[in-house]
């Protein structure tokens, strides 16, 4: 009896396994409905907003390290190849390491934005938006190029405003024409940026520190921000007929060697308070 039970059990198991094994159905047997094949989950996607910010220095004006009160009418900057990256390891702009991106999302086109647009409380300027896979965008890169049209044509960065000191108002137009490629790490600021969730919106920001160019009259003269800044005086010295109107050529001709060296060393582009690595722009990036 035990033997027959074991034979029956083994036979049953074999038959069961055979059925589970997907034995082909007889031709006249209606084919069973195929189990729906598992569909891959749709990729998590959100929206990246890329903004440009000249900070309060541009929106509200400020006093330079050499006592000039600056008010900006326009601050045009022309950007292209704006690309947000998910990097691991995190990119360190102060090192020589390569940016190793697992995901990169680019914003198409050339964008000339006026950082002085809007009032003192204005939001950073929206450059554009793009759909992007969810994740943490902890690096941002872009190229700074000469505008090919519009008010800033021929300039990478064009500053228009008025500088005032000791009762003298000096309108200025400054055109900087050095093109560059900027590669930046994670945004640093009062809030975290670049963390994009499925269906969400995350911001990234190209930030420009004009206190690095002119210094900050609110800071001590020996503060790092002032010892490395040019101030406005070298530009004021180039005034003709009560106004400053200079381009790169006039700056090269009118600045001292030390001032030119300082200008060469300046790094205006940041990501919030985070740093960028500046390289001479190469074609094709």
């Amino acid at each position: 009896m035990i033997t027959s039970r074991w034979v029956s059990a083994v036979l049953g198991v074999v038959l069961f396994l055979g059925a589970c094994g997907g034995t082909p159905a007889a031709p006249d047997t209606p084919a069973p409905l195929a189990a729906p094949s598992p569909q891959p989950a749709p990729p998590s996607v959100g929206t990246l907003e890329v903004r440009a910010n000249g900070e309060d220095f541009v929106r509200e004006g400020f006093v330079t390290k050499d006592g000039w009160a600056i008010q900006f009418d326009h601050v045009y900057v022309t950007l292209t190849n704006l690309t947000a990256h998910q990097t691991n390891p995190p990119f360190d702009a102060l090192s020589n390491s390569r940016l190793e991106a697992q995901v990169s999302v680019s914003l198409a086109g050339v964008h000339t934005v006026d950082l002085a647009e809007g009032d003192a409380d204005a939001e950073p300027i929206l450059i554009g938006t793009t759909p992007a896979p969810a994740g943490r965008y902890n690096a941002l890169s872009w190229d700074m190029i000469k505008a090919t049209s519009g008010a800033a044509q021929g300039a990478v960065l064009m500053l228009v405003g008025t500088a005032s000191k000791d009762g003298t108002d000096l309108p200025f137009t400054i055109r900087l024409e050095q093109e560059s490629s900027e590669t930046c790490g994670d945004f640093i600021g009062d809030e975290r940026k670049g963390i994009l969730e499925d269906g969400g919106i995350a911001q990234l920001e190209a930030t420009f520190h004009f206190d690095h160019l002119f210094g900050d009259g609110d800071a001590a003269p020996d503060d790092e921000i002032n010892t490395g800044a040019l101030g406005f005086e070298p530009f004021a010295r180039l005034a003709r007929n009560g106004r400053v109107d200079v381009d790169q050529e006039a700056i090269q001709a009118g600045f001292s060697a030390a001032e030119l060296a300082l200008l060469e060393e300046l790094h205006l582009p940041h990501v919030g308070e985070g740093h960028c690595r500046t390289d001479a722009r190469t074609a094709g990036r």
């Binding site: 995190p90 102060l94 640093i188 206190d211 308070e273």
Partner: peptide, 15 residues
């Protein structure tokens, strides 16, 4: 994993 340490002062910072 990677711990992040952010240091900020007077509008400037690093990680």
């Amino acid at each position: 994993g990677q711990w992040e340490v952010v240091v900020r002062q007077a509008g400037h910072g690093g990680t």
